[in-house]
Amino acid sequence: MSIHLEAPIATERYGDSAVMVTVRHPDAALRAGHIVDVRDRLVQRRPFGVTDVVSGLESLLVEFDPLITAAEHVEYALRLLADLPPLDALHVTPKNFVIPIIVTEQTAPDLDEVAAEWGVPSDDVIDHLLRSTLTISLLGAAMAPMMAGLETVRPIRRRAEPRTDVPPGSIMVAGTNAIIQPFPGPTGWRVIGRTPLTIVDINRPEPVSFSTGDIVRFERIDTAAAARRDGEFLLPNTNGAPA
């Protein structure tokens, strides 16, 4: 984690109760990295009146109560936070996850299209996924883990026509990101596999076991192994760092 943010942040008023924060820099990866840094600082040192934060890939929506603070105060606090070195408390050790996936015609309906886009055999696309070390950059809709660091031949385009109902556990990719669908729902991302594990369980006191900054790798398993692990709750790897 950087000590100082080399790129300046920009803020924009989003109505009477929110400020949008972005990072000014031509490099998208750097923008995405810095915004994670700003979010961690903000969440750790919650400025008075800030009620919640919504993470985007390269942005942060900071929501506040306008009856006890004002956009000017929030923007000032954000600039201070961006200038300060991060708290030691931020240096938590990331957890490691090894997530099993099955790749079949049924569970990876977009695999051939991605392969065609890259001009490689389908197995090559899965090899890229399996050798990627991904970092959870944010929790997306319904606590879905959004991961950065997917190895690609070139960034993956979204589908022109979104799929309306993708089953839970689907491994989806777009750009150089991957995400796992926790609940059935629509997506414009490419579906290239599925995990039999339960990613989000709302009946547990902590519905997810992962948080931002954690490390994820995927391992391919066969359908028999998948059947044995069907519904198992995703937990971090306890055998140290993934091989």
Partner: peptide, 10 residues
């Protein structure tokens, strides 16, 4: 436009 958060009422 890269996906980003939006307040209620946008």
């Amino acid at each position: 436009i890269v996906s980003h958060g939006v307040p209620i009422g946008a």
